[in-house]
Design a binder for these strands. Structure first.
Length: 205
DNA sequence: AGCGGGATTTTCT
DNA sequence: GAAAATCCCGCTT
């Protein structure tokens, strides 16, 4: 039935809360705002934070890595929803995405900013920054949360990186605007963020 | 506060 | 060989 989530689990409650990931990335992106990333490091330290900025990408969109079809790099984007797509760029940065549905359709949501909730001290060690500079950008998020290509394809229903959708997710004050850092399809309004949240990478547009 | 350039290597043409 | 879903530093205003 539902092989992408909790294949070994009895906690179907959590699986149900992630069912929204099966939709189109442009609908999933705003719904990921307010969801929690929970990262367990090898040394047992737990980091967590609330997603406050996202961008949708899909295979009909020239700005998407999946636009030109499945390649070794983008294979995960065409796989099951609820997994992590991690890519390496500019010779030094990792960025991570939550894969959306349906299976066989290349789409994902870039996690652009997170508001830290737990483990800020440990994030500071990797970032050499503090406060909003910890996680106000996609590559900063990956550095703070120690996310690299080893986590590419990871199932987000399980440790060491879990996506958790709280029952009381805040749906108010969401801004929808155009995406950042792309050279084509600049007019598509697939960027979403919480208005006035200090961790948003770049307010307004 | 804002702009411009450099870093650095994977990925696909 | 060129571009890249970025970040950081240094310089100017």
């Amino acid at each position: 039935m539902n092989e992408s989530f909790g294949s070994n689990s009895a906690d179907t409650a959590e699986d149900d809360t992630l069912a929204f990931l099966y939709g189109p990335s442009s609908e999933v992106a705003p719904r990921l705002l307010g969801c929690i990333f929970e990262r367990t490091l090898d040394n047992g330290i737990i980091l967590s934070g609330k997603i406050v900025e996202t961008e949708a990408y899909d295979q009909t969109d020239t700005a998407s890595h999946s636009y030109k079809g499945k390649t070794p790099r983008t294979e995960v984007m065409f796989g099951p929803p609820g997994h992590l797509y991690v890519y390496f760029t500019y010779g030094m940065h990792y960025c991570c995405n939550v894969v959306t549905g349906p299976v066989g359709y290349g789409a994902a949501v870039l996690i652009r900013a997170i508001e830290p909730l737990q483990g800020e001290k440990d994030m500071e060690l990797r970032r050499t920054r503090h406060g909003r500079e910890l996680t106000n950008g996609p590559a900063k998020v990956c550095q703070a949360f120690a996310i690299n290509s080893q986590l590419n394809g990871h199932d987000l229903s399980a440790a060491p990186l879990k996506l958790i959708a709280p029952a009381d997710r805040d749906t108010a004050n969401i801004v929808q605007t155009t995406r950042i850092g792309i050279s084509t399809a600049k007019d598509i309004p697939w960027r979403f963020y919480y208005r006035n949240n200090p961790y948003v990478s770049k307010p307004s547009n």
